[in-house]
């Protein structure tokens, strides 16, 4: 891409001034619509009490304070279950789910993309079709299956389904198809390396943006997991659930609740900022060809 950008355009593309101005105006309006709520929640989290209850509410803060964040931690430590437990639950399920997903999905994606075996194409078609189904629609039947497997109210109920996500496999398979050349794999196979070794040593290092994307998606999903119908025990519930309980505490906690939203959103946003270019690269091969 860098190559293209440095090239001097000899042909002037058809761009009118009016069009440029119009596009800029639309972009700015939409940008404000997207950004203001995000900005407002950050401002709210920094407002002292008297500014939180000011009429009309302001879009800026005169005396910024971290008191809301302190309040948040006080509220957190007052619960029945120690807050560190909620943090552990979310971090543990996020990591265990993501690691499993990375191994299982990329291994399957490699086989589907790079080994021609009977049934491989059908399997991928099935995965692609299931992109159409939102998981809330199957939640009830999933619950029945999980209770048959006796994993309701355990970490497994969150972790195991995360090992086989559709989007993860789909993106990985598409990315491998375009970014791993068959010639390299063939020479590795001729050297006598097993298919598994070829996958791990040759193919995986070539698709770093792909697995970074898979990690980010999987992690975001698990991190943002709120109350789950598969978990009843208070000590197994997620951080997001616990934080939503604080928010539900009503207007007295307006400051702490804004602080909690800020704390929760920082993690996925930071992760995205760091990995953005890799994710966009992966998305380059996300298209559906037929």
């Amino acid at each position: 891409m860098a190559k293209l950008r440095t090239r001097k355009h000899k042909v002037v593309l058809a761009r009118s001034r009016g069009g440029d101005a119009g596009i800029t105006v639309i972009l700015v309006i939409l940008g404000i619509f997207m950004f203001l709520p995000m900005y407002y929640v950050i401002i709210q989290s920094l407002k002292p009490l008297d500014e939180l209850w000011m009429f009309p509410p302001r879009f800026y803060v005169s005396n910024p304070t971290f008191k809301n964040f302190k309040d948040l931690f006080t509220l957190m430590s007052g619960g029945l279950v120690p807050f560190s437990r909620y943090i552990f639950n979310t971090v543990f399920t996020s990591v265990a789910g993501t690691v499993g997903n990375l191994f299982f999905s990329s291994m399957a994606a490699y086989a589907m993309a790079k080994i021609a075996f009977p049934g491989g194409k059908t399997m991928f078609k099935l995965v692609r079709t299931s992109l159409m189904f939102h998981k809330t629609v199957t939640a009830v039947t999933c619950f029945l299956l999980m209770s048959t497997l006796k994993i309701i109210d355990t970490y497994w109920a969150i972790i195991i389904p995360a090992w086989g996500t559709t989007l993860g496999l789909y993106l990985m398979k598409q990315f491998m198809e375009t970014n791993v050349t068959d010639a390299v794999l063939e020479s590795s196979r001729l050297d006598g390396a097993s298919e598994l070794k070829t996958f791990w040593v040759i193919a995986m290092p070539m698709v770093k943006p792909g697995w970074l994307t898979l990690i980010v998606y999987s992690f975001q999903d698990l991190w943002n997991q709120g109350a789950s119908m598969y978990i009843h025990s208070e000590q197994l519930k997620s951080l997001n659930y616990a934080i939503q309980q604080i928010t539900a505490g009503g207007i007295k906690r307006a400051g702490a609740s804004a602080a909690s939203i800020v704390v929760m959103m920082m993690v996925p946003i930071l992760v995205f900022v760091i990995t953005q270019s890799n994710i966009i690269e992966t998305m380059g091969s996300s298209g559906m060809k037929d």
């Binding site: 191994f103 299982f104 999905s105 291994m107 399957a108 490699y110 086989a111 589907m112 080994i115 021609a116 075996f117 009977p118 491989g120 399997m123 099935l126 995965v127 299931s130 189904f133 998981k135 199957t138 039947t141 999933c142 299956l145 497997l149 195991i160 389904p161 090992w163 086989g164 559709t166 496999l169 097993s194 298919e195 598994l196 996958f199």
Partner: peptide, 23 residues
Amino acid sequence: NKVAYLMVLPYMLVFTAFTVLPV
């Protein structure tokens, strides 16, 4: 291509159990 089936097996098990079977 035995090894290919081995490689898709873990994923397909989870995918079948929690995505296909519920449908």
